[in-house]
Design a protein around this nucleic acid. Structure first.
Lengths: 186, 186
DNA sequence: ATCACCATGTAAAAGGTTACATGATTTT
DNA sequence: AAAATCATGTAACCTTTTACATGGTGAT
């Protein structure tokens, strides 16, 4: 259901096309907390329109293909407000890398170490991406209105999530190296 | 596919029944990095048996219902080793709470603040749970062999994930309060 | 007695991914 | 000329969740 409410949220802040919403998930603010493919977005928009929570309008663009822009309806706004009042479900941890914890010893330690190094790079890049999203906010921290403050804290969460990963990778390699030294001594 | 490899991993470390594996996901080491219901576990075990990656043996217990204990086969071990050599897919962020970032202003600020406080409690408890799992390892940090080191680092990741959440909750409430003071002044 | 825990499964529904399908415009 | 971006959809498949189904043992 979160996909639905994220889309309603985007449309509550301003009318958008399916393509624009999909982009929010791929690179924009949506990428801070949720993922959805373009296919999912188009599919959900069709459903939401049928249920009267959003309406669409075809906009013709000069020298461009026309696009279908969606807006939230009063019914849709009621729906999202109702949802926001309910407690959120914490994300379930689903981390492939964890399998190493039980079965890592079945492969050479170099496989594990280089995988952790690869992940460090990945999360470092992600962290930088998230920091870019935060730029408009960190540059006026003293002047954030409540709407900006909400966006800022969500982006901050995404940044520290990635940062925590980077720090964990460094720590993990240290622990592995220390353990290897131990086994050499004995 | 991760469910499959997590189960193979558990069985690679020792033979277990479906119930025991389900418990690992619910409260044990599995809960550090993956979630799976008992239904999923039983279903996957049936599939893995059909594919010859695990074998089962019915164990009768004194004064208890008999249980079906599974062990990994040579084929299964080959499968998991092959999988461990491949790069891991980082988890996709799916965090309901993020919707607040776009639509939080549609409800009263007290709704948001009390939700963040509720989440702080939740993650604090989770952190304590994960710390309990780490106890056998932190008590002999100097003596960890590589198998222990792998388990320890995965648990450490789970701990710092929860810790990061707790710190974020505190920071988020501060940012919100600061923003509210701003709007009162102007 | 009631609750927690042990123990194992099936089936339907919901949610998400991947593949298929198409085609124009803008930038390099 | 090729690649990236704009623009929208359908269908099949895979994964996950929820509901259904059952019943014994041990502790309070």
């Amino acid at each position: 259901m979160t996909l639905k409410y994220t889309i309603l949220g985007f449309l509550a802040s301003q009318p958008r096309s399916g393509y624009e919403i999909a982009k929010e998930f791929a690179q924009g603010f949506g990428s801070c907390f949720w993922t959805a493919s373009a296919q999912q977005v188009y599919c959900e928009l069709t459903k939401l329109k049928q249920q009267g929570e959003i309406i669409d309008e075809v906009i013709s663009q000069a020298g461009r293909i026309e696009k279908r822009v969606y807006s939230i309806t009063a019914k849709g706004e009621k729906e999202i407000i109702n949802w926001l009042m309910k407690p959120t479900e914490p994300a379930k941890i689903r981390e492939e890398l964890g399998v190493m914890g039980i079965a890592g010893h079945l492969v050479d330690v170099s496989v594990i170490v280089s995988e952790i190094e690869r992940r460090r790079e990945f999360h470092f890049k992600k962290m930088r991406q998230m920091e870019k999203l935060d730029e408009p906010f960190v540059n006026k921290l003293e002047l954030l209105d409540i709407k900006d403050a909400y966006m800022h804290i969500i982006i901050r969460r995404a940044i520290s999530y990635q940062k925590e990963w980077v720090m964990w990778c460094d720590e993990a390699i240290q622990v592995i190296n220390f353990s290897l030294q131990n086994s050499n001594i004995s």
